[in-house]
């Protein structure tokens, strides 16, 4: 009992600290709105994946600092590359519109394009917050003896269609990056889809694949154990964690690619509710836990919300449309 009380006190205390921090910023008129029932916290991906882990971290931060008067209840809806989640949000009605938010990733752009039958228009979703942008690197096994992109290109050229690039689902981020590498360096790597980035990382560590384009969080364990090696990053600048790996930009290829980690609200969410969730997630973003996580996982990106987030989506959507057209997925 003692434990609970003491932690409750510290919880309240930290909420107070955050509360005072927040009151320094001008409050908008809609500050009065509060959720009237538990909030559906939809996760557009399966349990245990990158998006899921982040969603559960956000939920924990909300709970720990008492950021919401009603609990956030996570539900995973990974079906149809997120189609199920998008339809669920689109189909909310009445009070549910103000009580449904979703953690989303780049399938937010690609799934509606690849499945036009869904009739989902992402510009109708409420822009609550972009929490981070995940980065990508090109990875090989240490035993391959490959130390640079030049080595990689000659090895992959020699193996031709027998060079195996493991990645997540077809038409998703990993395949877009594989396609970029194939075109930029005249390669013919074979793309083999697996379920989830963790599984992809394991395929490389077990030498069942020749290369991958994992996020840092997925390869970190193997990298630290000295099993795998990053060759280059798909980022504008070198990543602190992998200082030896150049960017593709440095190597003369103007290619940068990120995975968004954002929170969106159901289409038709009221302005007051949207403002409420923006405040909640701005506080999550500012929390020590989130900042620490971003640093540890080599995540990019500042907090974006409102019109700026919407503009960002539309820009990213156009880029993805172009890429999907190039690989013949749409």
């Amino acid at each position: 009992m003692k434990i609970i009380t003491r932690s409750a006190v510290s919880g309240v205390a930290s909420a107070l600290v955050l509360g005072t921090a927040l009151s320094l910023t001008p409050k908008d008129a809609s500050a009065a709105w509060e959720p009237k029932k538990p909030v559906d916290f939809v996760i557009m991906a399966g349990k245990g994946g990158g998006a899921d882990k982040m969603a559960r971290l956000m939920q924990s931060v909300i709970e720990k600092h008492n950021l919401s008067s009603k609990p956030f209840v996570p539900i995973n809806k990974p079906g149809g590359s997120g189609a199920e989640a998008l339809i669920h949000l689109k189909g909310t009605s009445g009070a549910n519109k103000d009580h449904t938010v979703m953690v989303t990733l780049n399938s937010f752009y690609t799934t509606p394009m690849r499945q036009p039958g869904l009739g989902v228009d992402i510009s109708t979703f409420a822009p609550i917050g972009r929490m981070a942008e995940d980065t990508f690197l090109l990875w090989v096994h240490k035993d391959s003896g490959i130390n640079s992109v030049t080595d990689f290109v000659s090895a992959a050229k020699a193996k031709g269609n027998n060079w195996i690039m493991a990645g997540t689902g077809k038409g998703q981020e990993d395949q877009l990056l594989t396609d970029f590498l194939n075109r930029a360096y005249g390669l013919n790597m074979k793309y083999v889809p697996f379920k989830g980035g963790g599984r992809v990382a394991k395929e490389l560590a077990g030498k069942h694949a020749d290369s991958t384009v994992n996020n840092p969080s997925e390869q970190l364990g193997f990298y630290e154990a000295g099993t795998t090696r990053p060759l280059a990053a798909f980022t504008p600048n070198r990543l602190e964690l992998f200082g030896d790996a150049p960017t593709f930009k440095e190597l003369g290829e103007d290619f940068v690619y990120f995975m968004q980690r954002s929170v969106v609200g159901a289409p038709g969410m009221s302005g007051e509710a949207e403002a409420y969730y923006r405040r909640v997630f701005a506080q999550v973003y500012a929390s020590d836990e989130w900042q620490d996580y971003m640093k540890k996982k080599s995540l990019y990106g500042g907090f974006l919300t409102g019109q700026r987030l919407k503009d960002y989506w539309l820009r990213e959507r156009d880029i993805h449309q172009k890429m999907l057209k190039e690989i013949g997925e749409i």
Binding site: P78, G79, G80, S81, A83, R114, Q115, G169, K170, G171, Q172, P193, K195
Partner: peptide, 8 residues
């Protein structure tokens, strides 16, 4: 979901 093609 068909995991290989990514299509429903």
């Amino acid at each position: 979901l068909d995991i290989i093609s990514g299509q429903p």
